[in-house]
Structure formats: C-alpha cells, structure tokens
Simulated assay, not measured.
Amino acid sequence: MKERLELAEIPREKKISKKDFLERYVKPQKPVVIEQLIEDWPAYTKWNLEYIREVAGDKTVPLFDGKKTISSKYKFNEPHLHMKMSEYIDLIQKGPTSYRIFLYHLLREVPGLQKDFSFPKIGLRILKQIPMLFFGGENSKVFMHYDIDYANILHFHFHGRKRCILFPPSETKYLYKVPHALITREDIDFMNPDFDQFPALRKAKGMVTELRHGETLYMPEGYWHQMTYLTPGFSMSLRAAPRNIENLSKALYNLFFMRHFDNAMRRWKGQKWIDYKNEQAVKRTNKRAETF
C-alpha cells in the first residue's frame, strides 16, 4: 500500500454555543467543522451556482489558473484571466478545470447578496468589510498556503463538496515552505505525496475534512490549508483579526514588506527568483528535518 500523509479527521459539531466555541477551539487554536451554524441564513437555501448566475452573471470576474502560479510573469495574487461570471459557471459545469475565482469581493459588486447572510455571533470580532467568495470546478485546487493576515477564518461552503487539508503552524518545518512566500512547494500532491522527493512530509501531522453545502470550517490563525473542489461549487470566508500579538506582527510584516519584496524580486530576477525559492524550500526543509 502506498505511503500517505498522517491526516486526522477535523472534529465536527452539529451546533455549538459561543462559550464552548471560544473555550474548546478559539482559545486553544484548534480547527472545527460546525455543521448547523447557518441554517437560518437565506443563503442556506438560496445560494447555488444557478442563483449566482441569475444575480451576478453579467459581472466580470478574475480567474486564477493553478497551473500557472509557479511563474514570475505574475505578481502575488495577480489574476491570469477575466471572464463573465455566467461564462465561468458554464465552464465549471461542463467538466474539470483548473480555473478558480479567488478572494473575489462579489458582495461589493452585487450588494443584494449581503441580505442573504448575517455575521455569526460566535465570539469572533469579524471584519465586516471584507467577506470574500471563492469558486472552483471539479478537481481545481487551491495550493497549500496560510493567509497573509493571520486571520481567524470562518469558511462557509455552498453547492457541492470540497476537501480541506489543514496543518497547524507547528508543522511548518516539515512542509517545504517557500522562502519569502505564504506557500509550500506547489508541486506537492498532499493526497499522494512523493516522499522520495519530499521526505520531511513523513513527519508532518495534519487534518482533513470534506465540506458539504451549508457547513462551516473554522481555521485558526496561521493554519496552512489546501482546498480541492471535488465538485463544482463555491465558498465564502469571513475573517477576524489575529488575537495573538506575535501573529499580528507577522501579518503586518507580510502585508507591508514581504509581498512587495517578493514582487520586486520577480520583476528583477524573473523565473530565476522562483526557481531559487523552490530549491531553497527543499534544501532548508530537509536540513531542518534532520534535526527533529
């Protein structure tokens, strides 16, 4: 039998009180899936791909191709293509595609969607200005990464199924993190990793779950996450600022220095900079892993 990563199931709660959520998950910084957090939202019954086509089909949306991210041609989080939302929904309904919509503020473009949800009173100080939507077709993947702002994230899934793999920050030393970036090596298949090429992954301990329509995943500060759309679908994320002062300082560093430094190096060195970072990810991780 082929060797696989050590992935435990993310805990699940049907429903949970604010007190229990804070004590059992937010304070100890542990992820959880809440199955029945948003059943009172209009979005719970209304939001599917056909509804999005109806209310936002004429909007032009930015698309990201997972196959093109290892390239110096694009800046950090720069779209690879633009398309009408109705055309994109047609695309993902036809079959597998690598194109995704990533960090799109559709709620700003279509204000009426804001009437379909409310902010959960669950103990997090949610930043109400930036609800973001994410779309993907069958087999499209979001590379393993952690968020630039170290936010506490509530990730609500709609329409279809999505597999989510998480690693706590403590496992960073085994994940082949790319220097001056928020990602791991993008050629790692976390469901079927090549342990000969990436031996440190044997020591990494992560978690996995499969989200279905209406379920909510809580991801704590700085958690690594990789998403795979098992069917066409979309999700929305709400964010709360980091509670940990150290994580807040890391977020400020990422926002005001790291991403600008990386974009400048991409412009200056081109593909050589990308290749150098990927090489260093392997060298540094394998060297560190030998000491643990």
Rank of each mutant, 00 (worst) to 15 (best):
M1A: 13
E3P: 08
R4S: 11
R4K: 14
L5T: 02
L5G: 04
A8T: 13
E9N: 12
E13H: 08
K14V: 09
K14C: 07
I16Q: 06
K18S: 03
F21I: 03
R24D: 05
P28Y: 07
P31S: 11
P31R: 09
V32W: 03
I34M: 05
I34F: 00
E39M: 04
E39A: 10
E39C: 11
P42V: 05
Y44I: 07
T45G: 08
K46Q: 14
W47A: 08
N48T: 10
E50I: 04
E50S: 13
A56F: 04
G57R: 07
D58I: 10
V61A: 04
T69N: 08
S72K: 01
K73M: 09
K75G: 15
K75L: 15
E78R: 06
H80I: 13
L81N: 13
K84L: 13
I89D: 02
D90T: 13
L91Y: 09
I92K: 09
Q93T: 13
P96S: 10
P96W: 07
T97A: 08
L103C: 12
Y104F: 15
H105A: 13
R108I: 08
V110C: 03
F119I: 15
I122Q: 00
G123C: 00
L124P: 01
I126Q: 03
K128T: 15
K128I: 06
I130W: 08
I130C: 06
F135V: 11
F135K: 11
N139T: 14
S140D: 03
A151K: 10
A151H: 10
A151F: 11
I153M: 02
H155A: 12
H155I: 06
F158R: 12
H159N: 14
R161N: 12
R161W: 05
K162W: 01
K162A: 04
L166T: 07
L166V: 06
F167I: 10
E171Q: 15
E171L: 07
K173H: 02
Y176E: 00
P179N: 12
I183M: 10
T184A: 15
R185K: 13
M191W: 11
M191C: 11
Q197P: 06
A204I: 05
K205Q: 10
L211F: 06
G214F: 04
E215M: 06
T216C: 14
Y223R: 11
Y223K: 12
H225Q: 04
M227D: 10
L230E: 15
G233Y: 11
G233A: 06
F234W: 07
S235M: 08
R239Y: 02
A241D: 05
P242N: 03
P242E: 05
E246G: 11
N247A: 08
K250V: 01
L252P: 01
R266I: 03
K269A: 13
G270Y: 02
I274R: 00
I274F: 00
D275P: 08
K277Y: 07
K277F: 05
K277V: 05
N286V: 01
R288T: 11
A289T: 05
A289R: 09
E290D: 00
